[in-house]
């Protein structure tokens, strides 16, 4: 009981502190695409956290996958006279006129996690990950892990023709180029889904001598890896040991698999796009320091050495 009162007291105090900070802090509008995936939900909650940490007054608008809603939100941010706007664009084209309106109102716009087709002077900077680099980080891990041993890799691609599928494949191939002991023996699309990941992995195992021929699996996202891990187990093999598993995204479920020794590595597509964005805005608004047109987020490699269960719990809290 006493602790409860104490807790309430702290909350009130914290609230006072916060409000006093926000009195002269900046106001930022954030036009988010929607909440179509766990990663997107996590991005939203991390953005809110980062804003709170810095004492920024964040105005959040969910566009429910519609560009017209995003344009409406940006116009209303301009009308409210915000200091800056964060935009996670749902599509690449059709932004020119609304961004010009923002430019005329002298409000800097920062793009989050996706680029657009528009003149560069219409936005301050874009904060995104480098998909090719993500593939390369995964490939580098595998190269280091297998050393000189022969290793046949099966690859679960993303949706055929999508840019993450193309770039993550390219990056991985760059990393293993020159290491002749590592070969991609089969590559097939798993559509970024668990179901297809599992089904395709089943066929890989059958086609490669019951899986004995496979040394490692590279999946373009964690969801396919999670499905494939089940397929490996059901075939009587040990994922993580008989077949190494490396994938990209770092969603919570892969950390659970990692904790069980069933996955070996994942490359994080960080949901924290807002942190670097806020830093750049701060520098720009306070010191008039123009940032580079592209800010690349960190593509951090996680392995079982990184306390996977702890990361799992942290990530779980972000709404993944």
């Amino acid at each position: 009981m006493r602790s409860l009162i104490l807790l309430a007291g702290t909350a009130v105090a914290a609230g006072l502190v916060l409000s006093s900070v926000s009195a002269n802090a900046m106001t930022v509008g954030f036009s988010q695409i929607g909440s179509e995936s766990g990663w997107r939900a996590a991005e939203t909650s991390v953005t809110k956290q980062e804003a709170e940490k810095r004492g920024i007054d964040l105005k959040f608008a969910d566009a429910q996958q519609k560009q017209e809603n995003q344009i409406k939100a940006i116009r209303s941010f301009i009308a409210q006279g915000v200091d800056a706007i964060l935009l996670a664009p749902v599509v690449a084209t059709g932004w020119d006129s609304v961004l010009e309106e923002a430019k005329e109102a002298d409000i800097p716009v920062v793009l989050l996690d996706r680029q657009i087709d528009a003149p560069e002077d219409l936005y301050l900077t874009a904060v995104t990950s480098d998909q090719t680099y993500e593939g390369k980080v995964a490939g580098d891990w595998l190269v280091k892990d297998v050393g000189d041993k022969e290793c046949n890799v099966v690859e679960l691609q993303g949706t055929t023709g999508s840019s993450p599928a193309i770039n993550r494949k390219k990056g991985f191939e760059q990393a293993i180029a020159g290491h002749d002991n590592i070969k991609i023996v089969r590559s097939q699309t798993g559509d970024f889904t668990r179901t297809k990941g599992k089904e395709v992995m089943e066929s890989f195992i059958k086609a490669e001598d019951g899986g004995k021929n496979i040394c490692a699996l590279y999946a373009h996202n964690d969801d396919m890896a999670v499905g494939a891990i089940q397929a490996i187990k059901e075939a009587g093999l040990k994922p993580g040991t008989d077949i190494k598993v490396v994938s990209i995204d770092a969603v919570p479920d892969i950390f659970q698999a990692m904790a069980n020794g069933e996955a070996n590595a994942t490359v994080e597509l960080t949901p924290n796009m807002a942190g670097p964005a806020f830093d750049a805005l701060d520098a720009y608004l306070k010191d008039k320091k123009e940032p580079a047109k592209w800010i690349q987020t960190e593509s951090k490699l996680y392995t079982p050495a990184d306390e996977p269960m702890k990361v799992y719990e942290e990530k779980k809290g972000l709404g993944y």
């Binding site: 179509e36 559509d191 970024f192 889904t193 668990r194 179901t195 599992k198 999670v226 499905g227 089940q230």
Partner: peptide, 16 residues
């Protein structure tokens, strides 16, 4: 069956 197969419900992709 689809959910039980992957030990999870994927609202975006199940039965797509």
């Amino acid at each position: 069956i689809a959910a039980a197969d992957i030990k999870g419900a994927d609202a975006n992709n199940a039965g797509l």
